[in-house]
Structure formats: structure tokens, C-alpha cells
């Protein structure tokens, strides 16, 4: 996994709540057997009409907005456990998703794929929607997110273990494999 430390970028503001994983990547695009290429179909049915033409007023098609940071309404990533949602977001080029709440499975999935979910307060989130052309800095080391338009910053939570992994580019499997002896001992003692 790539290392993650600090990102400064413009944002893509998507003021929609309860964005579920069926919207992030519709089921009909889950037929691949590799992890690549899902970005093409990220938010497919909001992004393109049935003839494959871009839908103008959807934010990913709005040339004013671009960047590594997706900002979305509350309860982002609810619904299915498909990790394809995190792959699609990563493959499209996002490295951070900001919301005021994340669904649990999505949060785990994105952390496992080098996408940082940053949970902020409702007020802080609204600061982005009110200034969609702002530049934002996310610093994992100090767990701080800064909105240059309002000049405000907020601390965000991240599990210290996950933070360590992201900063160093480790993933969970590396860690678990290093525990093999303990796992075998656990099996014996049950």
C-alpha cells in the first residue's frame, strides 16, 4: 500500500446524504476479477445517462471541481460491503473522503486501500459546501483538516493502529501474518 501523510488539494463537493455503495459503484460493474479500472464507473448512474453521455449537473462532470478530496453528506458509504466502492474511489483518484459520518464497513474498506475517511462535525462539513472552491489540507500526522476558505481547522479521529499503517504504507495482512504463532497457539488452547 502507498504511504499517506499530508495532502493539500481542491475538493469535489457532493452535498448528498446517505450515499450508498450501490451509487458509488452499481452492482452490474462488479463482474471484474481484478481490482483495477473501477474508477471509470464511479457514481456511474449519477454521472452518465443511459446513452453514456455525461449528466451535466452532476458534480464529477462539473469542470469547476477537481481534486484528491471528495466531500460528501452524512452517512457516506452505507449499504453493501463491496470493497469495489473503495477501489472505485481510489482508482478515480481520490485519496480522502470527508463526511460527517461514515458507514463502518466502508470506513474499514477505504482504510485498507489507502483512502483516508475524515469524519468532521456537521458545521465544519457545511463550511465546505458553502465554499466549494476552497483548498483543503489534510494532515494525518497531526490529525488535522484545514479549510482555507474559512480559515478554520478541525481535529479528526483515527484509530492509532490504522494511522500507523497508513503513515508507513503497511496493511492489515502484513500485521496478521506476523502473528501467525499466536494465532496457532490460540487455536490449540480453545
Amino acid at each position: 500500500m502507498e504511504k499517506f501523510s499530508k495532502i493539500t488539494s481542491t475538493i469535489v463537493p457532493m452535498q448528498i446524504e446517505n450515499v450508498d455503495t450501490d451509487q458509488i459503484i452499481p452492482a452490474r460493474f462488479l463482474k471484474a476479477t481484478s481490482r483495477d479500472g473501477f474508477g471509470e464507473n464511479l457514481f456511474r448512474d449519477w454521472r452518465y445517462d443511459e446513452n453514456g453521455n455525461p449528466i451535466k449537473d452532476f458534480v464529477l462532470n462539473d469542470s469547476r471541481y477537481d481534486g484528491l478530496i471528495l466531500v460528501a453528506g452524512k452517512n457516506f458509504g452505507c449499504g453493501s460491503s463491496r470493497e469495489h466502492a473503495a477501489w472505485a474511489i481510489h482508482d478515480y483518484g481520490f485519496r480522502v473522503v470527508v463526511s460527517s459520518y461514515f458507514a463502518d464497513i466502508f470506513k474499514n474498506n477505504s482504510l485498507n486501500n489507502g483512502v483516508l475517511p475524515v469524519q468532521v462535525s456537521e458545521e465544519f462539513l457545511n463550511g465546505f459546501f458553502e465554499n466549494p472552491e476552497t483548498e483543503v489540507t489534510v494532515d494525518l500526522e497531526s490529525q488535522k483538516i484545514y479549510n482555507s476558505a474559512t480559515g478554520e481547522s478541525e481535529l479528526f479521529d483515527i484509530n492509532p493502529y490504522k494511522k500507523y499503517c497508513l503513515l508507513n504504507g503497511y496493511d492489515d495482512i502484513d500485521y496478521l501474518v506476523s502473528m501467525k504463532d499466536e494465532i496457532e497457539a490460540f487455536e490449540k488452547n480453545r
Binding site: I105, N108, N109, N112, N113, D171, I173, I183
Partner: peptide, 11 residues
């Protein structure tokens, strides 16, 4: 998620 499926496969 699939990364976790892989974790269970491995350990």
C-alpha cells in the same frame, strides 16, 4: 470487505 476476506484467507 475483500481485503478482509484476504486477511481471513491468510490467517
Amino acid at each position: 470487505g475483500t481485503s478482509e476476506v484476504e486477511q481471513v484467507f491468510a490467517t
